[in-house]
Every structure is written in C-alpha cells, then in structure tokens.
Nucleic acid binder design. Structure first.
Lengths: 151, 151
DNA sequence: GACGGTTTTGTTATGTTATAACACAAAACG
DNA sequence: CGTTTTGTGTTATAACATAACAAAACCGTC
C-alpha cells in the first residue's frame, strides 16, 4: 500500500472509531499502520519485530491485544490458514470476505463475492446454523504466478 | 461414531490405500481410529495423549506425520479455525467440503454443498486463480444449541 | 482537581501448536 | 542379498497465543 492510500485508510479508521466511541490508541494505530504498510500478510511476531522501532521492548500481548481490537472493529482480517493478518480492503461496512492466497508469491486478494455470500447463507439457513464468523480462504496460485510458470 | 460405522470407515480406508499403493501403517491406522472415534474435533496433542495407551512415549512428530498422511489421502480434514482434526465423512471421492462448527457444543457438520462449490469455482476462474486447497469454515451456533437457548 | 470506576498497557510467565534435523529400522524391489 | 525408498524414534526448538496481575491512563462527576 502506498503512503497516500495508507493515509486515507488511517483517516478512515480514525473516523470509524470516533463514530463508534472506541479508542484508536497510539499502539493500535501503530499496529494498523504496520499491517497496512506491509505488502504481505504479517504474523503477529512479524509485527512485534517491527514495533521495536517505535515501542520499547514490546511483548506478544501488546500485539495480540491491538490485533484483537482491530479485528473487532473490522479494520484487519486474520488469515487462519497461514496464521497471519492483513489490513481490510473495505472497512466501511461489516462484511465477510473471501481470500485468495497465493502459495507462491504470498500475495493475498480480498474478495467480497455476492454469489459466494449467498450460497453460504443458503447453506446456513438450510442447516439452521447461525453463523458468527465465516472463514473462506482459497489457497493456490494467483494469475500472475501462473503466468510466470509458463516462462 | 459408533463402532460399527468405525469398522466400515477403517475398512474403506484400507481399501483406498491399497488401491492407491500407499501404506496405512499401524500408527496411521491408530491415529485415524482415534480421530474417527472421537465425537469432537481433536487437536494433535489430544490425539497424542490418547496414543499413550497404545504407543510407548509418542512424540509430536509421530502424530503430525500420521496426520499429514491422512490429510493427503483425504481421510481426515483439518479445521484451521480451531486447530483441530476430524475424520472425513465421505473419503471415497476427492472433494472440498465446508464445515459448520458450533462454538457452543463443539460439534462439526461437514457439508458438500454444490452451490458453494460452484460459486467458489466461478470466483476463482474470474480471478485466474488456480486453487490447491479450499478452507471454508462457518463458526457459529448449530440448530440444536439455538434450540437450547430458547429453553 | 480529587475521586472512583473503567479501559488500556506493561510485564512475566507459560500454554499450545508445529517442525527441523538426524539416526535408525522396516519395507519394497531389483 | 543389497540398495533404495519410506517410515519411525528422539531430541530439540520454532512459531503462535494467552493467563494473570500490577501499574498507568482515561473519563465522567462531584
């Protein structure tokens, strides 16, 4: 994410938190910035390492607490299949997205596909299941890396 | 899973492995039995504990290696969102299923919903993404537990 | 601006999940 | 048989995550 886009995201995050009456403290802000700046999903310990630049001697709970907050606010997502975190592409509205995770280059694409969402909702109601959270992660090879294979 | 059903599953697993020319060794067999006997998803360390009954002083790699094999053969599934393993409900054909995971009772329901599968495939081809693995886990409250809430 | 409750942070320790590395054993196969 | 491949035992450690409790910061109100 370039610095202009990052500034937009941070401003949006500030606004959302203000609206909701929750506190985007400096630490939470730092973690959000680090996650969004990164070109790749970041593990909690990756973030922890980067925090050493701005925080003295941070410990795991520092990062996990900030991540918990950001997850609750929908500002970041957790990728369960790779134990990593990414900034949300469209934090404005609550949503459940799908992730295309390239096993070659590590790049992640966040989708919000209405057809997938619909089919999941149908299956849920058919089973009488009340979802709280949806994890949809497709792991494979992205278009770019498939191209490279042919070179 | 009752013992009759378990026997069927084990027999089916034996047959599949024979067909494929892979070895369902005693350890792998034990792990498959333990996973299938369990009413709930089992963590690797849960399995490890149960193995102490039949194997002397088993170590984590013992379990993880057996699980890797069983995952490759499609005989068990890994639930990424809860770091646990379940026996496959229909190991006969390769498939990617969806899991309804009840956060209240821990029960897991494996679906093979064609509409979900179709919508995922569509999204993949629209993105030029070649999937290797699909993780679809819905975490929430199952019908039975929703009923209990009302009592 | 002092108080009391609430939320956030600091800190230490520990729990849980997963793999690396290498030696040894067993099976497969000519 | 001997050799190659595959599976196992063992030790150690890496990677991911949380418990528990004390201290600090924030927030409303008197």
């Amino acid at each position: 994410m370039d610095s202009e886009r990052l500034a937009q995201v941070m401003q949006r995050a500030e606004a959302l938190c203000r609206e909701r009456g929750v506190r985007l403290t400096p630490q939470r802000r730092t973690v959000l910035e680090l996650v969004c700046e990164a070109e790749r999903p970041m593990s909690a310990y990756d973030i922890l390492d980067l925090m050493r630049a701005s925080v003295s001697n941070p410990a795991p709970p520092t990062v996990y607490r900030a991540l918990d907050f950001l997850l609750e606010q929908g500002l970041v997502h957790k990728l369960e299949s790779i134990h990593a975190f990414v900034g949300c592409s469209h934090p404005d509205h609550p949503h459940s997205s799908q992730f295309l995770i390239c096993a070659d280059c590590g790049d992640v694409n966040e989708l919000e596909d209405p057809a997938i969402a619909r089919s999941l909702r149908l299956a849920e109601s058919a089973s009488g299941f009340a979802p709280k959270r949806r994890v949809v992660e497709l792991i494979g090879t992205c278009a770019r890396c498939t191209g490279k294979d042919h070179e």
